[in-house]
């Protein structure tokens, strides 16, 4: 019964090898909580995000997906009065330890935001921003990084003739792919994407989804989405959150076709959320 309804909605699944959660862990949350003042937006979440896989986060609005995602590169630090509890392990260290250098952490964990947020600079300067930060000055080297990143983000052909044009002149979909290129240029180990296609039309969305499929070969990707189809299409693993709690986490096909938790089932079949 459940399977039928679900299968009606979801028709394509990402095809990945059978590595699953057993694969090597990239980031691990251990009883991780995040507070906005007194409000606990993420509640004692424990999960292991595997290397070189796409992990999707789904759940109703306000359930803490973005908060959890932004906890992975400590973007929440920007908001005053946030507080973390528990551990978030990356590369053997709890990134909330006092002696962690946030700047280096963020250079290793790239992020793509919900709305494309290109700098009001040229396309080239946007992509070269990260490498320049890391001290790359050589023009040749910069050119290479920029081209490689733009190619990886599948936008090279569209912009190669106008690298010195202002990035704000591009379409929304192009801007988002430029943001991805910019994030890739710092050669991150993890790429966090917070609803990267919610501001885009279907065509641009399809391009980004294809891109995620490409990028999973080399990067660990965590993607937040409201689009069930999208989660199914692009992800290897899916985490379902509800009111700050991680309700279910598992292989995407399994979670969608045979969820263990009735809440998950309800959400997927569209009975709430």
């Amino acid at each position: 019964m459940t399977e039928e309804i679900t299968m009606k909605k979801i028709d394509t699944f990402a095809e990945y090898g059978e590595a699953g959660p057993a694969a090597e862990t990239q980031v691990e949350a251990r009883d991780f909580s995040l507070f906005y003042g007194d409000f606990e937006a993420v509640r004692k979440v424990s999960l292991k995000i595997p290397k070189k896989k796409v992990t999707a986060m789904i759940g109703p609005s306000g359930c803490g997906k973005s908060t959890l995602l932004r906890s992975i590169n400590r973007m929440n630090d920007l908001i005053p009065s946030t507080r973390a509890a528990g551990e978030m392990i990356f590369d053997g260290h709890n990134i909330y330890d006092r002696n962690i250098d946030v700047v280096t952490l963020r250079a290793r964990v790239g992020m793509v935001f919900q709305k494309p947020n290109v700098f009001p600079k040229t396309i080239f300067d946007n992509v070269a921003y990260g490498p320049r930060l890391q001290g790359v000055k050589n023009r040749q080297e910069l050119n290479e990084v920029v081209e490689r990143s733009l190619r990886q983000a599948a936008i090279w052909d569209e912009v190669k003739d106008r690298l010195s044009a202002n990035a704000l002149g591009m379409s929304g979909g192009q801007q988002q792919r430029l943001c991805i290129a910019r994030a890739l240029a710092i050669k991150p180990e993890i790429l966090l994407m917070d609803e990267p296609t919610s501001a885009l039309d279907p065509k641009a969305t399809a391009k980004i989804e294809d891109l995620v499929g490409e990028l999973r070969k080399n990067y660990t990707i965590v993607i937040v989405t409201h689009n069930m189809q999208q989660a199914a299409r692009v992800s290897d693993l899916t985490a379902f959150m509800y009111e700050g709690v991680l309700v279910e986490f598992g292989k995407t096909r399994q979670l969608f076709t045979n969820p263990e938790n009735p809440q998950t089932e309800n959400y997927i079949t569209g009975r709430f959320g």
């Binding site: 920007l78 700047v103 280096t104 963020r106 250079a107 935001f113 930060l133 943001c179 710092i186």
Partner: peptide, 18 residues
């Protein structure tokens, strides 16, 4: 200045000063 610029820069590993 849109907050998003700041987030983008910090997200790329820029320090506050930079």
């Amino acid at each position: 200045v849109p907050r998003t610029y700041k987030e983008a820069a910090l997200g790329l590993g820029a320090g506050r000063w930079h």
